[in-house]
Amino acid sequence: MDKLKKDNFKVANKFLKSRLIVGTGKYKSFTETAKAIQASGADMVTVAVRRVNILDKKKPILTDYLNPKKITLLPNTAGCFSAKEALRTLRLAREMGGWKLVKLEVLGDKKTLYPNMVETLKSTEVLVKEGFKVMVYCSDDPLLAKQLEECGASAIMPLASPIGSGLGIQNKVNISLIIKQSKVPVIIDAGIGTASDATIAMELGCDGVLINSAIANAKKPILMAKSFRDAVISGRNSYLAGRMKKSSFASASSPLEGLI
């Protein structure tokens, strides 16, 4: 147990209790969002930056439902299709509350929401120079992941499959290559469909997973949030325990000695 206790998860000098990071989009209400976050055990959640609604002054806002003492907000650049838009968004986010730790995503295509890696690399470079700690949504290309790390990314966040698709990890080989080469945390971002997908990601050796749609779009989001909490812990423990070797032949579990 001692070894498990020391299994810290640290991103850009920030210790996190949970290796599960959750998104706050797509929920039916802010109450449901808050309950799902609590059930997930996550202490870091992603948020988007958007215009306030000036027409409805009394409408509640998300930050009224999140306890800043317990939960770290990770501003994202969802919906940005260029380095310029992403930089504008994150500079505003920083102004809102001094956030330095941010999630960069620069999208390249509206249908697949696949990341535009050229713009992503450019933005990472600029943000790092401005003192941001940047967790970067990226493709599962090991060479580009390496370049991001060299640019100063604080975490590499390759997609498992397209955002919101729920297709799970499509290229385990690439994800494994990225894990092996990276010195910063590797966090699967996007595409996880169900709890077992998260376990697989953790068993591969990912440092964490980021889940939004798989929880928010479940029939019972709060129960699914709990399920993901357990799945991530389980996958991490399984990775640390080290799985048995695979074999093409059977190996009896009961000894043959003393057989009557």
């Binding site: 998104g23 948020v47 958007r50 306030v52 501003p75 986010a93």
Partner: peptide
């Protein structure tokens, strides 16, 4: 003038 805040997102 633009006023922005945090909303739900992934």
């Amino acid at each position: 003038v633009e006023i922005v805040h945090f909303i739900g997102g992934g």
